[in-house]
Design a protein around this nucleic acid. Structure first.
Lengths: 208, 208
DNA sequence: GTCTATAAAATGATAGAC
DNA sequence: GTCTATCATTTTATAGAC
């Protein structure tokens, strides 16, 4: 038959579609409860398939989480790419933090940046993930260096510290508490977090 | 017998001693793994007693964690009290953050400030804990107001935001990553976190 | 690949002897 | 109050039919 390849490609498309739907659910659950509290039963139920079917797509809970996290890094890389326009490096960094905090508030940012999480180790042993994280770190690291040499960011602060501080905003509980309080809109919360992150909480000396 | 009360008091002392030992173990486990990953088997093994004995002291895992957390707030209140000397309010706040980050690095700071943690709800339903948290918030809130009115902290930032930001430093993953990197000593990490927390990462405009 | 049914292990909690 | 033994439940993962 002549349409064998077409049929296969259609099937492959359907497969990808289904797996993307699974990863959407996983991403959401990772964001709301974290890896340890997320159960495979829950994932299967929310996707609307049997648990055994889930295991046909992903070999284990850890593999499933790793796939979801890899997709997240892909998205972060896309955001980084979009930000590579005519912005100064400080604005690029702020843009990345805005994206992360916004996603966190929308429950689409998996709760990871914690040395304590039990997936952390299996993730570091998953080369496709680590390779992409490496690319992300390199891109953001470049922005940080540029911002420091051009006097936009404090040059006395080790770049490492700035890098981790930027990434850590994606899981900052301050956003959750402010949202819980109900006094501010999501965009307001995002802007306040960005401000305290980059400018601190002390009185701005330049205005005195 | 005349020494009945003495005997009782001695027994009570022993009981408190044992329960304090249990809470030490729990505090350490909560700091390293969090509530959900901490198991009662583990607690019992590390204390050196049978799991059933553990349940004679504390009715459930949640009660156990609540007791540990209450003791933590007691210690925070003691630190707040020690800081009520001749320091300006900004230095008091920094002192509190220093204590929290130092404890975090020493694995003695339970990983909580997360809306996602599954104990959070049972804690809010435990009046002794909430009462002490209330006192802590009041004391720190007063410092924040003083720092804002005296121009030490940005007055345009809602007090709420400053309060949460200060508390959130106790579980900031930046400290963990920097420690993992091995390039800095614990006190250096503490000072860098305090600096970025209060002064941000942007170039200080007053030096230009 | 999807399902039902079930294994295998971990874990919170309790029974009951001493 | 401490122990051993056990229960009940949850949860990761698989077997095997269709």
């Amino acid at each position: 038959m002549q349409d064998t390849t077409q049929k296969t490609s259609f099937k492959a498309q359907q497969l990808k579609f289904r797996e993307d739907a699974i990863l959407d659910v996983v991403n959401h659950l990772l964001a709301r409860k974290g890896f340890d509290l997320m159960t495979m039963d829950e994932v299967a139920a929310e996707v609307g398939i049997a648990k055994a079917s889930l295991y046909k797509h992903f070999a284990s809970k850890e593999v499933l989480a790793a796939a979801s996290m890899t997709r997240l890094i892909d998205r972060a890389l896309a955001v980084v790419n979009d930000l590579s326009v005519e912005l100064d490096p400080l604005e690029k960094l702020k843009g990345l933090v805005r994206w992360a905090v916004t996603a966190h508030l929308a429950n689409t940012m998996p709760l990871l940046p914690s040395t304590r999480s039990s997936i952390q180790q299996s993730l570091t042993n998953y080369p496709p993930y680590m390779e992409k994280v490496g690319r992300l770190i390199e891109a953001v690291g470049t922005w940080i260096e540029q911002a420091q040499t051009s006097g936009l960011l404090s040059a006395s602060l080790p770049g490492e510290v700035i890098l981790y501080t930027v990434f850590a905003r994606s899981c900052d509980p301050v956003a959750d508490f402010l949202k819980l309080g109900g006094a501010f809109s999501d965009p307001e919360i995002v802007e306040m977090l960005v401000k305290t992150c980059f400018d601190g909480m002390s009185q701005d000396k330049s205005t005195l």
